[in-house]
Nucleic acid binder design. Structure first.
Lengths: 239, 239
DNA sequence: CTTTCGTTGAGGGAAATCCCTCATTTCGCC
DNA sequence: GGCGAAATGAGGGATTTCCCTCAACGAAAG
């Protein structure tokens, strides 16, 4: 059970993670903090609520998630795990339990995991565009206290943003849209009007309008509404 | 400066706030936790990047935010404060400083507030729909350490969700769309204009327009472009 | 050093959307 | 039978978006 020192350690770890300069450093810190609480399986990934594929990109996967002898790879496992899909409806971190039944694995969202099997904590990470990522931690004898939930929530959120900062920086500029265009479109998808976006970004209405026209042209669509869908499909903006 | 006991207290307070049954209880807990850190001014409100008004509803305002003798009410103050608007661009909690210059108050976003004037910490709160609220804390001699930032971030996030739970009883009833509405929206997402959809479905332009308005209302969004994203997110239409 | 590209901004006008209210019909339900 | 919700449609006006062209500036690329 988390004590005073652990509470202090949570903030210390969060700061270390925030300033981390490599994914390995993040992993090490998370591992070190979570191990005493009984967690020894980790998954960290970016996500979006876009239809089928919840999981966008997996940053880190570690530990014995599948029962031994399973032949599925980590990626497939994460993507099809029902617990992963549940973050679509989740508004906050939640515990889950996997029990092995005769018909196969049975996953359940629970308030207080106990008993046999693998238990875990799934932490959705929200940002300006809604669901942006998540972290899942698991183990067989975990600290499932409310305090652990809060502390791991803090750690996981920091880990996600920090990992994304490190990993997505190099990969940026993939799509045909420029940064500015993506920004304008993201705000449009968020429901803001041209004049509002202009105010927010410190531009003239004209410029925002010009950006949007350019966006439509680039995406080869007729209307802005369609541009939203195409952009989401292409991963240009978050779903 | 936050010590071990304070770290422990942060989690304890967060849990108290999570389980609070009245706004007063939340306020008391936040006050109690923040006071030792030098914070004695508070604002808690729901916000949205999808409306013209950033601030939607103010849950709690307390403390001497304006210099004495000011005649503006709290609401007006919060709504027009430049720091408040900055949460639109923020991705994480940030410190700010208000210095009193001859030409009026000068607000600045800073990393380490110091010196004369009122300092504060603004904490944006994100949820499934992106920016959903924020909390601002201020004082004249505040603990602006990184650890305090994390702890107050935790407290503020919890305070917001808890306050909203109490005050916005049956909000967020994102009702499902009717078949016809879904059909109209699907065509819209496909890039068709209202008049084209009317022709395709054998309706009048008016009806298509009325359907779209109803859709926006149901999804609780401001523009059709936003409706596309929200509908995709909810699985109403294909992404 | 020239060209390209991204970003910014504008004029002028056409087209489309959005907003309010009101009304009719159909359909399932108690 | 009456009641509410969905679907349909309209009037009339206010906003907003969209389209075309033109132009300047800086940075990066050739």
């Amino acid at each position: 059970m988390m004590d005073e020192a652990a509470a202090q350690q949570a903030f210390r770890s969060a700061l270390v993670i925030e300033g981390a300069e490599s994914l390995a450093a993040i992993e090490a810190e998370v591992r070190a903090f979570a191990a005493p609480l009984g967690y020894d399986r980790f998954v960290l990934f970016s996500a979006s609520a876009t239809q089928d594929e919840v999981v966008e990109r997996i940053y880190w996967v570690e530990g014995d998630w599948f029962g031994d002898g399973e032949s599925v790879d980590a990626e497939t496992y994460v993507r099809r795990c029902p617990v992963t899909r549940h973050i679509l409806e989740a508004r906050e971190p939640f515990f889950w339990t996997k029990t092995i039944a005769k018909e196969g694995d049975l996953y359940k969202i629970v308030r207080h995991p106990r008993g046999q099997g693998v238990h875990g904590l799934q932490i959705p990470v929200f940002g300006r565009l809604g669901l942006e990522g998540a972290m899942s931690l698991g183990g067989e004898r975990i600290d499932a206290s409310q305090r652990a939930r809060l502390a791991l929530g803090l750690i996981a959120t920091m880990a996600f943003f920090s990992a994304r900062r490190l990993l997505e920086a190099a990969v940026e500029a993939v799509g045909p849209l420029s940064d500015r265009e993506r920004e304008v479109l993201a705000w449009t998808a968020a429901g803001r009007r041209q004049v509002e976006i202009a105010a927010t970004l410190g531009l003239s209405e004209r410029t925002v309008e010009n950006h949007l026209r350019r966006i439509r042209k680039r995406l080869g669509v007729a209307t802005t509404a369609q541009a939203i869908r195409v952009a989401i499909r292409n991963g240009e903006i978050a779903g």
